[in-house]
Computed example of a mutant assay.
Amino acid sequence: MAEQDLTLDLAFLKERLNAAVLSDVLDSLGHPSQAMKPFVRPLDDRSILCGFARTGLYMKRYVVGEGNPYAVEMALIDSLRPGEVPVLACDGPTDRIAPWGELLTTASMARGAAGCLTDGLVRDVRRIRELDFPVFHGGIGPLDTKGRAEMMTMDEPVEVACVMVRPGDFIFGDADGVVVVPRSIAQEAVRLAVEKIEAEDATRQDLLRGEPLSVVFARYGVL
């Protein structure tokens, strides 16, 4: 299980941050490849995903073996803590692996999870939307994973939509996309992002007063 040694106010950051500014900050810190491919989208564009990664790796498996094919998946969901985000790597985009649905959503909500992120498919989308739970996905489809894929490992580094995700990384997603902030730089990245957003707020006010863009940019240095 990922240990959360970051002191981030998730409720505040969910209200204040945005993916675009976080991506800009990561560029400035020498991490230009932390935004997921744009096929990963929220079920609801109003959703904000903000929390710490718990990872699971799915592999294709076309033969139903003995035992519980959901065992590792269930272990991950049952061990979620408040503020954590199950991050499910399915080698997406895919049209065959739908690991997430209403019941996993319900179980995750009961444990205080902050949402779900996967490059695989989701199903039961009407009910998930009714639950108002942030789910970012690689597509929508009805197929169960049983007999098609199985979560083989959990809490190991995984690649999702061309971004490496490690347990405990800070995950932020909104209508612009999903950004993964490595836990080693999360405190600094979040601080710089909040500072930039404050500068953007000041820029916006000056622009609304009619000041020239070039003058305002020279004053605050953000665009």
Rank of each mutant, 00 (worst) to 15 (best):
M36V: 04
S33A: 13
L17V: 06
F136C: 00
E102Q: 13
R191L: 09
R61P: 05
A71I: 13
A20T: 11
D95H: 14
R81L: 12
F170H: 12
G147H: 12
L43D: 04
R166Q: 11
Q187F: 07
R191W: 11
E102P: 05
L26K: 07
T94Y: 05
R46C: 03
L131R: 15
K146F: 10
R46T: 10
R111Y: 06
I171F: 07
G147V: 09
D176N: 12
H137Y: 15
L22P: 03
F136K: 01
G65L: 15
L143I: 12
P99W: 04
F170C: 14
M36F: 01
A2F: 08
E200L: 12
A114M: 12
R204P: 01
L22R: 02
K14C: 02
A11D: 14
V122I: 04
Y62M: 13
P82R: 11
G51E: 08
D78R: 15
E102Y: 15
E73P: 03
V40K: 00
R41H: 08
E84R: 03
Q4R: 15
M164N: 09
A20K: 10
G115K: 00
E84C: 07
E84G: 08
F39Y: 15
G30E: 10
R54Q: 06
R127D: 14
I48L: 07
R81P: 01
D144F: 10
R96S: 12
G138C: 04
G141N: 05
Q4C: 14
A186S: 14
L80A: 03
D124K: 09
A2G: 02
L10C: 07
V63F: 11
S23W: 01
G147F: 10
L223E: 07
T55Y: 00
E188Y: 06
L213W: 11
L207A: 07
L76P: 01
A71D: 14
T153C: 06
R16K: 14
